[in-house]
């Protein structure tokens, strides 16, 4: 069998000075070319998991491997690219959209060598639909345009793994649909491994057909494997009909309430329901 793209082996992580660990006993295996979505509440350890995966944090216990290597090694070899949640940058930053995409391609090219191949940059911009605003100043882009630029930046780096951290925060409905399509085409056309984390089930639903598996992360990890009922198809269907049903039926089906006793689920639940009713009807 191939080396897994991502492997977490009983990983526990505790921030210095924190009482409870942010992650506890997380084991995870993602194969090359697979897409995995992680859903969990805020503070459930999603960002911590991404930072462990990129080698920015080291596990308190357990082991993380990326294509068989330590995460820091994988990161420095340019195997990992990320699409960040909400990028804080100087609004007057002197760069065009294309300049930002080119950062991904030339991140590790030393100054004494010629720059990265710009065809890769242009291809990535074509794929993500950024070509028409390539010359715009990055600070002038809309939230949706910026997201596409950041996805293009990740693709231009030619990575083995792309991490999406809350990719649909602040993205409007057409943008969300477009993101789902983009994710699907990325999954179909390449053997890049995709890991997406979000607190928002709609984010997962918009790319539902893409994910091989969906897991729930709240300090510990719960898999919703296909035989248990929460297949991406089911999830998509549930989302289409009644969003409230996700936490009500499928969630309980997939693992017992005791395993994932998030008190905020009830509140968020109603919130999603309201959003859904307003947005889609």
């Amino acid at each position: 069998m191939d080396t897994p793209a991502i492997e977490f082996d009983s990983v526990t992580f505790r921030y210095p000075g924190a009482g409870a660990p942010a992650l506890e006993g997380v084991s995870l295996r993602v194969d090359r070319g697979e897409s995995l979505a992680l859903v969990g509440p805020n503070g459930g350890g999603k960002s911590t998991l991404l930072w462990l995966l990129a080698g920015m944090l080291r596990p308190t216990q357990g082991r993380v491997r990326v294509f068989g290597e330590a995460p820091g090694v994988a990161r420095r070899r340019g195997w990992i690219a990320s699409v960040p949640q909400q990028l804080e940058f100087e609004p007057r930053f002197p760069a065009s959209a294309r300049d930002v995409v080119a950062m991904g391609a030339s991140a590790r090219v030393p100054g004494w060598r010629a720059g990265a191949d710009m065809r890769g940059v242009d291809d990535a911009m074509e794929t993500t639909g950024c070509a028409e605003f390539a010359g715009e100043a990055v600070g002038a882009l809309s939230r949706g345009q910026l997201q596409r630029v950041l996805i293009a930046r990740a693709l231009a780096a030619g990575p083995r793994i792309v991490l999406f951290d809350e990719p649909l925060v602040g993205i409007d409905a057409p943008g969300q649909e477009r993101f789902g399509e983009l994710l699907a085409s990325l999954h179909d056309r390449s053997d890049v491994t995709i890991l997406l984390v979000s607190h928002d089930l709609r984010t997962v639903a918009s790319g539902a057909s893409t994910y091989g598996r969906i897991a729930c992360l709240r300090r510990t990890l719960h898999f919703h494997d296909a035989p248990r009922g929460l297949t991406p198809g089911v999830l998509a269907e549930v989302f289409e009909h009644d969003l409230a049903g996700v936490f009500g039926d499928v969630h309980v089906d997939a693992h017992s309430a005791a395993e994932c006793d998030d008190p905020s689920h009830a509140g968020r639940h109603a919130h999603h329901h309201g959003d859904h009713a307003g947005g889609d009807s």
Binding site: G78, F93, A95, M103
Partner: peptide, 18 residues
Amino acid sequence: RQLVFWSFDELGALTFGV
């Protein structure tokens, strides 16, 4: 190149192997 990436997005640059 590293300076430009880092100055735009430090955490991003870190993830991309800078």
